[in-house]
Each structure stands twice: as C-alpha cells, then as structure tokens.
C-alpha cells in the first residue's frame, strides 16, 4: 500500500504571532517555521503503518513556496520515502490545496491519504474532508486510532463527548487528531539521509488546477485584550465576590 501524507509549513507553534501594522495579515518574515504539528502526527502514523507492514511506501507532499522543501525534508527525516513539492507562491486556500492534492492522488494512486485535522495557522480544518469529497473517497476525520487490515480501514474518531468507530473500504482519507500518536524525533542519521531522498517539484499549472482564491481576507486584528481583575485573598472573599459582584452564583 502507498500512503500519501500532505504536510503544511506553518509558523512554529511557539512563536507569538504578530499582526502587520497595516492589518493586512500576520508578519511571517524572519519567523521560525515548522511542520504543522497535526501533520507531524500524520507522518508518524504513516511510518508506523509501514513499520507494521501495512504500507510499502510513504510519499510526502506539500503545496506552497519553495521553502516548503524544508518541511518536506523534515517529513523525509521522519521516515517518508520521497517527496513532492507543488510549488506556488500564490495564496493557496483550502479548496485549492484539496484540488492540488486530488491531482497528485490521481498521479500517485495511493490507497490512503493521512493528513493533520487542521493547520495551526488558519485553523480551517477543511482540506482532508474536501480532498475526500473531490475524490469521492470515504473519510475518517479526527482519528485517534487507525488500523488497516486487507482493504479495510478501521478508525476510532474523536467526537463530541467520546469516540466513534468507523469502518471503510480503501482508498480513504484520514485526518489525524492529537491523540493518534506521539511523533518521534528525527534521528541524526535520518536527517542526513533525508537530503538524499528524491524530492520532485510540480507546478499547479502542470496539474491543471486553478488556484485562484475564493475568499479575500479584508483585515486581521488582534482581539481586545482581556484585563485581569486582580487577586482575592481567600476562598471566602472569592465566593462573596462571585455572588455579589459578578452575580454568577445564586
């Protein structure tokens, strides 16, 4: 089985994002970038499936600027066998990314696509579902456990209030939730080997995909800061204030 793992390059989890002074977007210049953490979980899951013998090849794919090669190298260091960059400097929105990925799926013919449930930059939570729709494949979003046996995929999904088990025929799309696994660290030898693994570059035009944005971001702003209200001395004062001042206790 071949697994395709789409990965996104995002501003690192630990960076405090700043809005540009003109409010046109957030400042991404000279900011530390990393692989979207949920995609890292997806890569890890693919590698585990290969280690269990359920998969033979893992292809990482990223859509975006040339710098996404770094993210792909990270995926290769974590265990992907080869990588594809769909290179574009355009503002790639979720629908466009899903279409690009669908075109890559058509070329690569994987049986499984695993990706993060959402990217921590735009927090859209769309690409996996859109890709499944475009391919007419079943989807298993927010996965916390993935098992493959024969042509069947069994996934435990995080749903509100608990877990749901879904069973589906391959090919399918899985989106990874936080608890699916704990990604490994890339080992030093694998980081060095990653440089030698194949990385191909494609252009959206060659894939026949129109990536024109469908939404326009008019402005971005930081939310008004919530002000702390100060400290109370003890439990009695707290309860009194909640009752009499905030009036949230009867």
């Amino acid at each position: 089985m071949k697994i395709l793992v789409p990965v996104k390059r995002v501003i690192d989890y630990n960076v405090k994002v700043r809005v540009k002074p003109d409010g046109s977007g957030v400042d991404t210049a000279n900011v530390k970038m990393s692989m979207n953490p949920f995609d890292e979980i997806a890569v890890e899951e693919a590698v585990r499936l290969r280690e269990k013998g359920a998969a033979a090849e893992i292809v990482a794919v990223s859509c975006g600027a040339a710098a996404c090669q770094e993210t792909l190298r990270t995926a290769l260091a974590l265990g992907a066998d080869r990588a594809i960059l769909v290179e574009s400097d355009a503002d790639l929105q979720p629908l466009a990314v899903a279409k690009l990925l669908a075109a890559v799926v058509a070329r690569e013919q994987p049986q499984l696509v695993i990706l993060g449930k959402q990217a921590i930059d735009d927090d859209s939570n769309q690409v996996g579902q859109m890709l499944a729709a475009l391919l007419d494949w079943p989807q298993a979003t927010f996965a916390s456990k993935v098992e493959v046996s024969g042509g069947t995929l069994v996934v435990k999904r995080e749903v509100d209030g608990g877990l749901e088990t879904v069973e589906m025929a391959l090919p399918a799309v899985v989106t990874a939730d936080l608890r699916l696994n704990e990604p490994r660290y890339a080992t030093l030898p694998n980081i060095m080997k990653a440089k030698k693994k194949p990385l191909d570059t494609l252009k959206p035009d060659a894939l026949g995909v129109d990536v024109t944005p469908r939404t326009v971001t008019l402005s971005v702003a930081e939310p008004p800061k919530r002000k702390g209200g100060g400290l109370v001395a003890d439990v009695k004062e707290l309860v009194a204030k909640l009752r009499n001042e905030a009036k949230v206790l009867s």
């Binding site: 190298r73 990270t74 260091a77 660290y185 980081i191 060095m192 440089k195």
Partner: peptide, 18 residues
C-alpha cells in the same frame, strides 16, 4: 561534504527540539 548549510539547519532544529 555532508555538512551543507540546509542539512546543518535541519540538524540544529531537531537538536533544539530535543
């Protein structure tokens, strides 16, 4: 020869994480 700047950057990044 293997210590190309991009490989070194990846190594430093992973070491930093650890």
């Amino acid at each position: 020869e293997e210590a190309a700047p991009d490989v070194v950057a990846a190594i430093l990044e992973e070491a930093a994480k650890f």
